[in-house]
């Protein structure tokens, strides 16, 4: 598929370290659109929508925010911690969205699995279906994420 100049510009920004030290695409050689397509297919296979996933991530984050960086038990299955750093990070897409530099870590008490995400991850998944490229520091595998956040 031929890409527009805007898409080229966006992909270049995501590969660069202009907004985040290691960029958003990591070592992934696929194009941005291939990454998004592959993750969308995987999400569909898992029976979830990006809106479901983002809403659940936001819910878990919101429940741990009042703890100001401490681990809190959420429901029966999760320990959650939200680490708040000063400053904002903008969304790489060309619109005016800036997110707090806040990182949520969830630990599933039964499986022992740990998953982390930033506020920007939630936005990128919800609005752009973007889980980041393989090897990027904040890449989240859709299966790992779905298995963790919806596990009972």
């Amino acid at each position: 598929m031929k890409k527009s100049p805007q898409q080229d510009k966006l992909e270049a920004l995501l590969r660069s370290s202009k907004l985040s030290a290691c960029g958003f695409l990591g070592e992934d050689k696929r194009s941005l659109w291939e990454i998004i397509d592959a993750d969308a297919t995987e999400l569909e296979r898992l029976g979830r929508t990006r809106e479901d996933v983002a809403a659940r991530m936001q819910e878990l984050t919101d429940q741990a925010v009042p703890a100001l960086g401490d681990w809190v038990k959420v429901g029966k299955m999760f320990q959650v911690c939200v680490d708040d750093n000063r400053g904002m990070i903008p969304c790489p897409w060309p619109h005016a969205v800036r997110c707090l530099k806040r990182i949520t870590t969830i630990h599933h008490l039964k499986t022992g699995k740990t998953v982390r995400w930033s506020d920007l991850n939630i936005h990128l998944i919800k609005e752009h279906g973007f889980f980041e490229g393989k090897g990027a520091p904040f890449r989240i595998e859709p299966k790992d994420l779905v298995d963790s956040i919806f596990a009972s």
Partner: peptide, 11 residues
């Protein structure tokens, strides 16, 4: 300074 994970300046 506290390290920010993947932060450009703290890295």
């Amino acid at each position: 300074v506290r390290r920010v994970p993947d932060g450009i300046c703290t890295t």
